[in-house]
Design a protein around this nucleic acid. Structure first.
Lengths: 343, 343
DNA sequence: TTTCTAAACGAAAACGTTTTCGAAAATAAC
DNA sequence: GTTATTTTCGAAAACGTTTTCGTTTAGAAA
C-alpha cells in the first residue's frame, strides 16, 4: 500500500538508485531530476519503509528502557526526561518494567537485545544480585547505561546522584536541629543506593559523635507506604526518645508521618522526619515533608545523552570511555523537621 | 557478528531454507536434520534478526502509545497495564507524550506511523480540537484505539469509563450528605471527559431540584495543584455558603483542600469535597479525599486487548467491529466529605 | 520393470532500502 | 580532433528472513 522507491522510479523513468540518492541528498544527481524526484515523492506521499532501512543500516533508532516500577513519581520523571531527550535526537523509547524482579529484568534485557535496540537504559531491580546479564549486553556490543540504581561491579556508563553525600546531608541536618537519637529506615539490602544512603547516615552520626546503634536501623522490604506505617509503630514500641528519622524514600516517610499522626505523636515536635526523593506528594502531606530533592527529569535527560554518545561512537568505531555523571541533590526543608537551633 | 541462518546452513551443509523451516516447525524437514539444526542453532546462539523478520512479515510486534503526560498517577497506571498486557502477547510498547499539545500529538502520530508500529493507543491531548490526524491513521489501516480521553467524532474502538455517570454519583453523594450549594471545578472545555463530568454534575443537580448556577462552575486550564488552590480562594471570595465542591481531578481537589486548610475553612465541616481518579496521594492528604476510583491499570490492559484483536483481525483480513469498552468506577468515601445524613 | 506417491530438500524470489562501482554522456583541456 | 575529466546515472549486491514451488530420491503400487 505505501509508496516505495521503485514506484517513484517507475513513474518518472529513473532508477531506484537515483531516487534513493536524490532523497538522501547525494551529490551525483542532476539538480533538475532531483527536484522532480522530490516533487513526486511528496505527491505520492512517500515515507521510507523503516523495516528496510533498519535492515540495511543495522540500526533501529530505538532504545530500550527498563525501570523497576512505572507508577512511581521518581521513575516516571526519569522516563519523561529520557523520552524528551530521545525525541530530540530522533530516537524512540521502548519501556519495560522489571517489578523489582531479577528474573523479569533478565528476560526483558534479552527481549530488548532480540529486538536489536540501538542501546539500553536500565535502573536495576532490588531483587538483582547477579549481574551477568548486564555483562552479556556489554559483550554483545550493545551500548548500556545504568542510572539511579546501578551495579558498582559492572563496567559501564552511569548516571547517578551521590546518595551517600545526600544521606549525610539529611542526617547532618537532623543533628543540627538538635536530634540526639536518630533512626534510619533503610532500603533493601541489595541495591547500591540504599547501601550508600545507609553509609551516609552512619558517617554523619560518627562525624558528630553520636553513637551508631544498629537497632535503630530498620530494613524495608517493599518500600511502601504501609511499611512506613508499620515500622513507625514498631519504632515507638521498641525505643524511647527517638527524636529523628532519616527515611530511604518519601513514600515510606509519608507512611511514617501518617502513623505518627494516628498515634498522636507530634511531627516535628516529638520526632523529626527527613525523606528522600522529593515526591510531589511530600508537599501536600501534613506536615509537609523535609526531603532530599532528586532530579529525576534531569537524570533521564543525562542518561540518554550519555547513551547517545556511546551509540554514535560505536557506530563510527571510535574509542570512548565510560562516563560517570553525578547529579546534584539538595535538601528541601519543610515542616516535618524542627526549626534549626540557634547557637 | 550475530549468527545468521546462512552460517548455520553452511556449518551443517544444508540450505538456508531448510534451516529456516526447521526452526519454524515446518513439516517437510527430516526429524533427524531438524534435531541437528536445532542443536547447532542453540550452540551458535542463533537469534533471528528482527529487522529482517519485520521486513519480511511486514509487522514489528511493536505498538505505539501516546499519553498527554507521563508523570501522572492515572496515566502511569494505564501505561503499566498496557505494557503488562502487551508483554503477554509478545508486543513491545513505544511511549510518547503529547504534553497536552495538539501539534506534538500530531507529530508523534506521524512518527509512530513512519516507524510502522502495528497499532496505536492514544489518549487525546487537551489542546486537540481537530481530529483529522486520527482519521489519517485509520485510513492508513493502522489499528487505533482511544482510551480515557477520546474523540466522540472519530469512529474507532474506545476504552473509557462512564464519566457522566461517575460525576453524577459524586454529585449525588454531596447532595445526600446535605450539601445545598455545590460548586464544580471542571476540566478544560475541549476534552470529552471533562464535558461529561460537567454534564453528570449538572444532571444530578437537576434531578434533586437544586438550581444550576453557572457562576459556581470554574473552568480549569492546566488542571494543577496550584489551580486548585487558586480557585478555592476565588470561590470563597465570590460566593457565600458554598458547602460542597465536585472537582474534576484529585490533584486539583488536593490543591483546594490545601487552600482551605490555609484559610482555616474546615473540610468537611464547612465544605465537602469530592475529587476524581483516586490518586494514591488522596489517601495521605489531610483530610483524606473522597473520590471516584478510576481503574487505570485495568483500562490499560483492556485497551491493549482491544487493539490486539484489531491487529490480529486486520492481519487475517477478517471483518471486525469497533468495540466500546466501558469500565466500572466507584465512589470511595473518605474524610473530605461529611458523614451521610440520617433520614 | 514401470509408474505413482510421498518425503525431504533447495533454488529463488521477495520484502525495500543503501551504497559501491562502473559506464555513459557531457564537458573541459590540449 | 583527441584525450582527460567531470557529471550523471543505473546495475547490482547486500542486509537476513520467509515461503512458494520444483526437483530429487526413496519407497509403494502396479
Amino acid at each position: 500500500m505505501p509508496t516505495t522507491l521503485k514506484e517513484i522510479a517507475e513513474k518518472i523513468n529513473v532508477s531506484v538508485s537515483t531516487v534513493s540518492k536524490a532523497l538522501k541528498g547525494y551529490a551525483d544527481v542532476n539538480p533538475e531530476t532531483k527536484k522532480l524526484i522530490l516533487k513526486t515523492a511528496k505527491e505520492m506521499n512517500y515515507k521510507p519503509n523503516s523495516f528496510a532501512v533498519n535492515l540495511r543500516t543495522k540500526e533501529s533508532k530505538t532504545i530500550g528502557l527498563i525501570v523497576p516500577e512505572i507508577v512511581h513519581h521518581f521513575f516516571s520523571s526519569v522516563i519523561k526526561g529520557i523520552i524528551a531527550q530521545a525525541e530530540k535526537k530522533g530516537y524512540l523509547v521502548i519501556i519495560l518494567q522489571s517489578n523489582e524482579s531479577y528474573e523479569l529484568e533478565k528476560k526483558q534485557l534479552e527481549l530488548l537485545q532480540n529486538k536489536r535496540v540501538d542501546g539500553i537504559l536500565v535502573s536495576i531491580a532490588n531483587g538483582t544480585s547477579k549481574f551477568d546479564h548486564f555483562k552479556e549486553v556489554i559483550d554483545n556490543d550493545t551500548p548500556l547505561v545504568m542510572f539511579d540504581k546501578i551495579a558498582k561491579i559492572i563496567d559501564c556508563s552511569k548516571v547517578i546522584i551521590d546518595d551517600r553525600k545526600a544521606a549525610y546531608e539529611a542526617t547532618k541536618y537532623l543533628i543540627e536541629i538538635g536530634c540526639k537519637k536518630i533512626a534510619h529506615f533503610r532500603g533493601p539490602l541489595l541495591p547500591q543506593n540504599s547501601i550508600d544512603r545507609f553509609l551516609g547516615y552512619k558517617k554523619a552520626l560518627e562525624d558528630f559523635n553520636i553513637p551508631y546503634d544498629s537497632k535503630l536501623v530498620y530494613v524495608l522490604n517493599d518500600v511502601s507506604f504501609e511499611e512506613g506505617k508499620y515500622y513507625a509503630k514498631k519504632l515507638v514500641e521498641e525505643h524511647k526518645n527517638v527524636d529523628g528519622i532519616f527515611v530511604n524514600t518519601d513514600l515510606v516517610a509519608i507512611g511514617a508521618i501518617t502513623a505518627f499522626n494516628e498515634m498522636n505523636i507530634k511531627v516535628p515536635e516529638d520526632i523529626s522526619i527527613v525523606g528522600f526523593s522529593n515526591w510531589f506528594m511530600s508537599t501536600v502531606v501534613s506536615p509537609s515533608l523535609t526531603t532530599i530533592n532528586q532530579p529525576g527529569f534531569k537524570m533521564g535527560k543525562e542518561a540518554f545523552k550519555v547513551l547517545y554518545k556511546e551509540i554514535k561512537a560505536k557506530k563510527k568505531n571510535e574509542e570512548f570511555r565510560y562516563k560517570k555523571v553525578v547529579l546534584d541533590t539538595d535538601l528541601i526543608v519543610r515542616n516535618s523537621t524542627k526549626p534549626i537551633l540557634k547557637s
